[in-house]
Design a protein around this nucleic acid. Structure first.
Length: 302
DNA sequence: AAGCCTTTGAAGCTA
DNA sequence: TAGCTTCAAAGGCTT
């Protein structure tokens, strides 16, 4: 019942008319502010962007950097400094000007990203698979929906750490305040397009690759995400936009800053900073690490 | 038990 | 405003 409700709500959303219009080539959506208004207009695609992204075709053998196993377009300017040029600030589909880093996990033949060029898309005419995850579900506060079902974004902060009964008279004011804070349910961030894609495809990858480690699975999913066509990705971007919209309606006062800095900073990062004096860059790596030669996995390994 | 790994994208923070 | 950081999910692994 629960799942059915969730899935039907999800599939209902999937049948919303696309913002770009049915049958049209989906255009990149501009970033939206909190009021869901475009922060700026979508700029015209640069020649570089077009070169990277369109049309989405299978690369010729020469189009694949055999040494690193990374798909890079021919005759591109030297962008070796770029690892992932996120262009969300430019109002473009971010995937179009980035390529994945070399795999750190050895990938099996059925799961290696080389085997997934071209993208493992369904046969022409095959309806797009329906989403089966409960992330985008209508919860309490949504008219016409049973109020008993909470939105999955809400999770109890306390979790397993239930407070043990003890003499309450010993509690200080600060303690009770902290307790109140802890008991307040945490509203999670809405999922972005890639997260929605991961939720949808994780089970498939696990089944195909007989993997369980999320880190390895996420690497594969990241490569498959890059292998998706613009149209396929656009569906997830649109879904994520609806997710944010719904999240805003359910929690009008919520801000991502509510959860900002709540997780502990990585001890490793602290260690790295203290030992090297370096800081993580925007790509999540350290300058020394990024400069190291990429590991080459020969085809025989894959 | 808590945090790491790994991915991309959104949004917060800082200089 | 650009650049950097954090957090969303997931589950096995490490500390």
């Amino acid at each position: 019942m629960y799942k059915e409700t969730v899935y039907s709500a999800f599939n209902l959303l999937m049948h919303y008319p696309p913002a770009s219009g049915a049958g049209q080539h989906p255009q990149p959506q501009p970033p939206l502010n909190k009021a869901n208004q475009p922060t700026h207009s979508v700029p015209q695609l640069s020649p570089l962007y077009e070169h990277f992204s369109s049309p989405h075709t299978t690369p010729a053998p020469s189009d694949i950097n055999q040494k690193q196993g990374v798909h890079r377009p021919l005759q591109t300017p030297d962008l070796s400094g770029f690892y992932s040029l996120t262009s969300s600030s430019m109002g473009q589909l971010p995937h179009t000007v980035s390529w994945p880093s070399p795999p750190l996990y050895p990938l099996s033949p059925s799961c290696g990203y080389r085997q997934h060029f071209p993208a493992p898309t369904a046969a022409p005419g095959t309806p797009y698979p329906r989403f089966t995850h409960p992330s985008l579900m209508l919860g309490s506060g949504v008219p016409g929906h049973p109020a008993a079902i909470p939105h999955p974004a809400i999770v109890p902060t306390s979790g397993k750490q239930e407070l043990q009964p003890y003499d309450r008279s010993l509690k200080t004011q600060a303690e009770s305040k902290a307790e109140k804070e802890a008991k307040k349910p945490t509203i999670k961030k809405p999922l972005n397009a890639f997260m929605l894609y991961m939720k949808e495809m994780r089970a498939k990858v696990i089944a195909e690759c007989t993997l369980k480690e999320s880190a390895a699975i996420n690497q594969i999913l990241g490569r498959r995400w890059h292998a998706l066509s613009r149209e396929e990705q656009a569906k997830y971007y649109e879904l994520a936009r609806k997710e944010r919209q719904l999240h805003m309606q359910l929690y009008p006062g919520w801000s991502a800053r509510d959860n900002y800095g709540k997780k502990k900073r990585r001890s490793r990062e602290k260690h790295q900073e203290s030992t090297t004096g370096g800081k993580r860059n925007a790509f999540g790596t350290y300058p020394e690490k990024a400069a190291a030669p990429a590991p080459f996995l020969p085809m025989t390994v894959l």
